[in-house]
């Protein structure tokens, strides 16, 4: 079977094997600042959490830039307060409340509801606090809470600040861009409303 075997026949495969990519871990997440990354990733890898951050940014960004700036403070403040509350008063998850908040922000964006700066700030802080609480519940006794909460806040800051700035900037450029953002809001609302019904009805999810 191996007659005629030539070592150089293997070369392309050896080269391919050597070049096969493997995950590159530039930052070892299990040491030192691991819980910081843990917090950041916990927020960023949950689909519902990501949607909520997007919804916060869309809702705020469609206000005037002066009002939208309040969300830049509300989001990290709320996340921090919520995560701290999860530490002090751990309780059940607030997923249904998060879905309700998602629906509220989605409808608000789709209908382009305007609110005053204090209301926008209060709403943003409250919703971000729910998000922080839900994520904060993931902390265990072994978790470095300061790093984890810093990670949560850091991720929220990056996402909400960037998205709010983009939405606020682009929506002043052309009417159709603003309409596009409102359309995305209606999509978010639709997903959230259906999910709320799903959660409330208690229909068990079936794999497959």
């Amino acid at each position: 079977m191996m007659r005629g075997f030539r070592a150089f026949h293997l070369l392309p495969f050896v080269a391919a094997a050597a070049l096969a990519p493997s995950p590159a871990h530039a930052h070892l997440v299990d040491i030192r600042f691991g819980d910081f990354y843990g917090g950041a990733l916990h927020l960023l890898t949950g689909l519902q959490y990501g949607l909520l951050l997007l919804a916060l940014a869309l809702f705020a960004g469609l206000h005037t830039p002066l009002k939208a700036r309040w969300m830049l403070l509300a989001a990290p403040l709320g996340i921090g307060l919520g995560a701290a509350a999860a530490l002090a008063f751990p309780g059940p998850q607030v997923t249904l409340w998060l879905t309700g908040a998602l629906a509220l922000l989605g409808v608000g964006t789709a209908l382009q509801l305007r609110s005053s700066a204090p209301v926008l700030f209060a709403l943003g802080t409250a919703i971000a606090a729910l998000l922080g609480y839900e994520n904060g519940l993931a902390m265990t006794d072994q978790t470095d809470t300061l790093l984890f909460i810093s990670g949560l806040i850091g991720a929220a800051v990056v996402v909400v600040w960037l998205l709010t700035a983009v939405v606020a900037r682009l929506s002043t450029r052309a009417a159709w861009v603003r309409i596009g953002f409102r359309t995305i809001g209606s999509w978010i609302a639709a997903v959230a409303i259906i999910l709320m019904a799903f959660s409330v009805s208690g229909t068990p999810a079936v794999a497959g």
Binding site: S186, V191, I193, A197
Partner: peptide
């Protein structure tokens, strides 16, 4: 914009 919102109503009924 209206379609997804009303589609959600139908989706709720289905769910």
């Amino acid at each position: 914009v209206a379609f997804p919102l009303m589609m959600a109503v139908g989706g709720v009924l289905g769910v």
